[in-house]
Amino acid sequence: MRKVFTGSLLILVSGFILFILSCTQGSCFEETKSSIKATFYNDITHKPAAPDTLSLHGLNNDSLIYDRSLKVQPAIFQLKASDLSSSFVITINGISDTLTAYYSNYPHFISKECGYTFYQHLDTIMPYTHFHIIKSIEYTNKTISNLNGENIKIFY
């Protein structure tokens, strides 16, 4: 029995060293940004159809999310966490339109390593339809999160 205890003492000491080492902080490997995942569909056939070219940027934000990008499917873009609406200028096959999303924000804890993000509950997303390039929008999942999965279908 003494031998068992001596052995266990060794495990105890080595276990404590492992325990201290395990306390070192890890790194964040998860996606931390919540994004709308929008899939493009042909309005006539109702089948998925990536646009030949896609440009996208926020209204009053010069930074381009997509710049005449080819065959983007799905388009992924983020909403303003400090506001209840975000507008985007979208150009599909050279024809521009404006999309405005209305939503509510709520905090979400991802992990100890990654911290927090904001999720959004999508209320509506509406095209301004200057040139009627976007015919309609269908909602698949109104929770905008850092997870994969389609949120809206854009028919054009």
Partner: peptide, 18 residues
């Protein structure tokens, strides 16, 4: 309690607390 947290995305950095 979360005295402060911040997130950064396309629109910039947002700071909040719980």
């Amino acid at each position: 309690e979360t005295p402060s947290f911040e997130i950064t995305n396309y629109w910039g950095t947002t700071t909040s607390s719980l």
